[in-house]
Structure formats: C-alpha cells, structure tokens
C-alpha cells in the first residue's frame, strides 16, 4: 500500500485534510503519534488546498513516504506508487 505518514500535530493536519478531500486517499488507523494517508496509484495535492506556507509545505513528508515523488513544487505534490529501490546504487 502506498501512502505517507504525518506526525499528528496541528501544522500538518491541513495536508491530511487536503489529501482526503481529493477523494483519492483514505486515512488508515493511527499508529501511535502518526497518521497514515493511503492512496492507490497516484495522489495529487495542490498547495493552495492545504493553506500551508512553503516553509511547512516543503517538509510535509518528513514523517515518511511509502511511494515516490513525481512532482513537488510550490504548487503541487504528486505521489505515485513505486517498487523502485530507495538507493539506486545500493
């Protein structure tokens, strides 16, 4: 399953809300202090829908990513499922 973790703190809550509003994501059971937002093949989140400042936006996956970033700029975050190794040279 692909998805991303979020520490359950106020500053990241708008990211989860925006992801869930897309209709392409669902929230799994909370793991301790972490939320997990799951998606199937692809998830697009517009920064404008999150209201996050760039200072928080560009660090919003800090809790962990099961997937791959296809696009990440000031406007949009696109995540896709992946089987690629984390380190290409490992």
């Amino acid at each position: 399953m692909s998805g991303f973790y979020l520490l359950d703190v106020p500053e990241f809550a708008p990211l989860a809300a925006a992801a869930l509003r897309t209709g392409k994501a669902r929230e799994e059971k909370k793991i301790g202090c972490y939320r997990f937002i799951a998606f199937e093949d692809r998830l697009d989140i517009e920064r404008a829908d999150t209201g996050l400042t760039e200072a928080v936006w560009y660090g919003c996956l800090t809790a962990g990513l099961d997937g791959k970033i296809a696009r990440f700029d000031s406007l949009r975050l696109t995540l896709v499922a992946t089987n690629e190794p984390i380190l290409p040279h490992a």
């Binding site: 793991i31 301790g32 800090t62 962990g64 990513l65 099961d66 984390i86």
Partner: peptide, 15 residues
C-alpha cells in the same frame, strides 16, 4: 526523498 522513504520503514518498525 530517500530519507522520507527510509523513514517510512522506521515508522513501520515503530508500529
């Protein structure tokens, strides 16, 4: 991104 993907494994171990 490599860190975030590795971190997910650590969160899974924590779980």
């Amino acid at each position: 991104e490599q860190l975030w993907r590795t971190k997910a494994r650590y969160v899974e171990k924590y779980r």
